[in-house]
Amino acid sequence: MGKYAAYTITTLKNTQVYKFDLLLRIMNSFILVIAFREIWKAIYANGQGLALSTGVTSQGMQTYAMLSVILFAIMPPSISYEISDKVRDGSIVFDMQKPWDFEWMHFSKAAGVFVFNVVYAVIPQLIAVLLFFPIDYPAGMQAAAFAVSVLLAFLLSFLINFIVGMLAILFTETWGIDMFKSVIIDICSGAMIPLWFFPDAVSRVLLWLPFQGIFNIPLSLFIGKITGAAVWEQLAFQAVWCLLLLLLSRMILAWIERKLVISGG
């Protein structure tokens, strides 16, 4: 356990070097927060009875949109590029040979980036939003459920990234594949448009996919669209998908490790 924690701390230290980049990222996010808020405010002002038909008020939707930008900041960065670079120059072999688990190693690194992002990006952004815009935030059990849901969302996002990153070992060039992944997550997770805005047939399908666990569930918990017994259901939904994706990633990893040995030996 110690070596993984050490890796997390090293990553945390490495990321702190780029202070100016961070400032730009926060400014960037804030522009997005303003843009999203104004767009959804206008959409609600133009829509007749939208609050009734969707069950979310204009105020709630603005909070959802602003928070989606902030939640975006804690999602782990893509590992495909790193892996495909390492495959090209062959150094992937050293990563696989080291006496640690390849997936845990990447998770420890993602955890370091996560801690950094929460401290340096999410908290300043949240303070900025709370200062400039009045938003309602959850309390008590609902807030606790939201926090757990965010952690599960991070885990889901990490596992999807890791699985796509594994594909990098097979295809060497993953820029395009990674782009497809990002677009699918942006659309299917509710990050760009909340799921209840999609046509009914589409949203029914999207509600079964793992992607909605990344944005839709935590954000819906925050604005109180999910309450009561449904809270447990949705948290369980995220947990079950985490488990399934974890199993899938272990299977792919085992298969790739065998394959690497064969082509090496």
Binding site: I43, G47, G176, V183, I187, P199
Partner: peptide, 25 residues
């Protein structure tokens, strides 16, 4: 081919967003 198509897909996703929103409003 994959690179160009993925960018086309990204571009179309923004168009899809406008379409989805205007189905309700």
């Amino acid at each position: 081919a994959i690179g160009v198509l993925s960018i086309t897909f990204l571009g179309l996703s923004f168009i899809l967003v406008s379409w989805v929103i205007t189905q309700k409003v």
